[in-house]
Design a binder for these strands. Structure first.
Lengths: 140, 140
DNA sequence: CCTTGTGCCTGTAGTTGCTACAGACCCTAC
DNA sequence: GTAGGGTCTGTAGCAACTACAGGCACAAGG
C-alpha cells in the first residue's frame, strides 16, 4: 500500500469498500467528470480525501433516488460551474419527483394488466392460454 | 417497391409503420432470433406475412408490459424449442408481476423521500439547502 | 535479497437493447 | 434515363457501467 503520510487518505479500493461502490465505477466517475481528479502518490496511486468520500456518497445517494446522471451533474454544480442555487435544486427535484410518479402510474397499469391476466389462467390447460391470448396471437 | 405478387406481404418499412416499431429494431429482432428470418424477393427484400406481423405485435406488447427479453423469448417458446406450456407462462407472468410490484414499492419509497425533501425547501435561500443536505455533504 | 501476494495502474472490450449511419443496390415514376 | 425513394449490408454509437489483460508498486516472509 502507498504511504499514508500519517494522515488519512483513502486508496481507490478503500473508497470503494467504504461506499459500497464498485471500484471501477469510481474511475468511471472520474473520467466523466463527476469526481475530481484526486492527487496521486509518487507512484501514481490515487489518494482520496474526506471530500471525495462525501462527494461520492452524494452521487450514490442521488443515484439510489433515481436521479438521472444529468441531474446529478446539476446538483453538483457541474453544469454551469457555479454552485447550484436552491431554486434550481428544488426545480430539479420536483421534475424528478413528477417522473417518478409517472413511472409509478405506468407500473400500476402494468400491474393491473398482469394481475388480471394471471388470474384468468388456471395453469392447467395447454392450448388457448389466456395469458398468451391477452398478448395477442403469436402467429397467423 | 418489390413485387407484391398480388398477395399481401409487407416490406420492412410497412411492417414498421404497421406496428409503430422502429425499422431497425425489426432487423435487430431478426438478428437475435425473436423474429424468424422472412422469405426474400429475388432482389433480397424481406417479405413479411401476417404471421410475422402478429409475432412482432406480441413482442411489442410484452415489451410494453415490461417483460424482460429473456421472458419474451420464453413466452415465444424459444427457450426449449417446444411451445410454452401454460404453467410455465403463468409462472413467468407471476414472477414478473412480483418484480413489478417490488419496483413500485421502491419507487414509492423514493417518492416519499423526494416529496418530503422538496417540501422542506422554500426555494429561496442559497446556502444550507435542505435538499442538498438530505443527500449529504458534497465536500469536506 | 528474493519471492509471493496483494493492490493499484492503464487502456480497452464487453454488456443490453436498441438506434443510426455509410455506401451500395433496387424499383418506380416522370 | 435519371431522380427519388426504399431497402440491403455491415458497422459504430448510446448509457452507465463492468470486466478484463498486462504491467508496476509495495509490504511481509524466508
Amino acid at each position: 500500500m502507498p504511504d499514508h503520510e500519517g494522515e488519512s487518505g483513502l486508496t481507490r479500493g478503500e473508497l470503494a469498500r467504504e461506499t459500497g461502490c464498485n471500484i471501477e465505477t469510481i474511475r468511471y466517475y472520474e473520467k466523466i467528470g463527476l469526481l475530481p481528479d484526486p492527487p496521486r502518490t509518487a507512484a501514481g496511486y490515487r489518494i482520496y480525501s474526506a471530500s471525495h468520500l462525501g462527494r461520492l456518497r452524494f452521487i450514490l445517494r442521488a443515484r439510489e433516488l433515481g436521479f438521472p446522471m444529468e441531474d446529478i451533474r446539476g446538483l453538483l454544480g457541474l453544469d454551469d460551474g457555479a454552485a447550484p442555487n436552491c431554486a434550481e435544486v428544488k426545480a430539479r427535484t420536483e421534475r424528478h419527483l413528477a417522473d417518478v410518479r409517472a413511472k409509478i402510474a405506468d407500473l400500476r397499469r402494468v400491474e393491473t394488466v398482469l394481475a388480471e391476466t394471471a388470474a384468468k389462467c388456471s395453469g392447467h390447460h395447454v392450448p388457448d392460454c389466456p395469458i398468451l391470448d391477452a398478448l395477442g396471437p403469436k402467429d397467423g
